[in-house]
Design a protein around this nucleic acid. Structure first.
Ligand SMILES: [Mn+2]
Ligand SMILES: [Mn+2]
Ligand SMILES: [Zn+2]
Ligand SMILES: [Zn+2]
Lengths: 146, 146
DNA sequence: TCCTTATTGAGAATCATTTGCAACAAGCTT
DNA sequence: AAGCTTGTTGCAAATGATTCTCAATAAGGA
């Protein structure tokens, strides 16, 4: 059993929740997914296995609580997630023109926030840094386009 | 005429848009608002002046483009804004238990992001840093509550 | 004042996410 | 292995913030 599977199982057990067929399939789909994904993308890969959209939506929060995924960004009205396993927090750079999403490490931003957190006596759960703007490609075509 | 009024007027003129009664009232309401606000809060203060919710929603993006307000945070499914005049960008600390929102300066986080932006050739438009977790009050009552 | 074009209010439409509910399935307990 | 208790599911309806349609109206330049 893979790492994330046992972690999820442990989380569910601790909460007296059950590891169902649907939940297993969703977890599997999540870890088959590279990069960002939203509820619909998971559903597309699972509807043939008769997993409902409702259950996808009900499972996502569980996976977050379990620390297996995190809300990465919100794009076009949808919440997009990403797995946490092997994916440390990072900055998301979103091009407001072509919607491209770049990523870059948190670097010392992380320690600075933790330092400030200590001053505020704030217990950090999740850091979210998103920068909106124009990617280099769109900056070049800034005049032409539109 | 106040600073923000002429700035908005200038923005509209440049875009060949009109400064209407509704837009003026909305702008006024925005600058009467302290802290964060959402569309509904503005509407509540303007419905008696017969300004519609639709117009509030249509004006918010204009105010953003004009650089008068920015999207601060998203809470309980709603977008919450804040004015930019006299309110430099800052970090938002959101308590996941009591929903309190703390703020702290960007400090050197800003320059670090701009440095990284240069490396990525990314043109920054807006920086959004939000940290989720527990405020000090909720950390103390962590056991009791619930 | 006239004319062109942007704008508005009202209400319908969207659409992601949530919820109610009766049928079902996990996981314990014998 | 069967039974029992309780959490879970799919389906469809409900929600709720935001957007759109459209005919009526108001800016603002001529
Ligand atoms: Mn990412
Ligand atoms: Mn703020
Ligand atoms: Zn781009
Ligand atoms: Zn709190």
């Amino acid at each position: 059993m893979k790492d994330f599977e046992s972690k999820f199982k442990g989380f569910l057990a601790e909460k007296k929740l059950k590891l169902t067929r649907s939940r297993s399939l969703i977890l599997e789909a999540v870890f088959a997914m590279q990069g960002h994904f939203d509820a619909e993308m998971l559903y597309d890969r699972l509807k043939d296995e008769s997993v409902s959209m409702a259950t996808v939506y009900r499972t996502l929060p569980l996976l977050m609580e379990a620390g297996l995924i995190r809300l990465a960004i919100r794009m076009e009205g949808r919440d997009r997630f990403e797995r946490t396993f092997g994916h440390p927090q990072h900055v998301h750079w979103i091009c407001e023109n072509c919607q491209a999403v770049l990523e870059s490490g948190l670097g010392s931003l992380k320690s600075m926030l933790h330092k400030e957190a200590k001053a505020l006596k704030f217990g950090i759960d999740q850091i979210n840094i998103t920068v909106g703007g124009l990617c280099w490609k769109c900056r070049i075509n800034e005049n032409d386009s539109q």
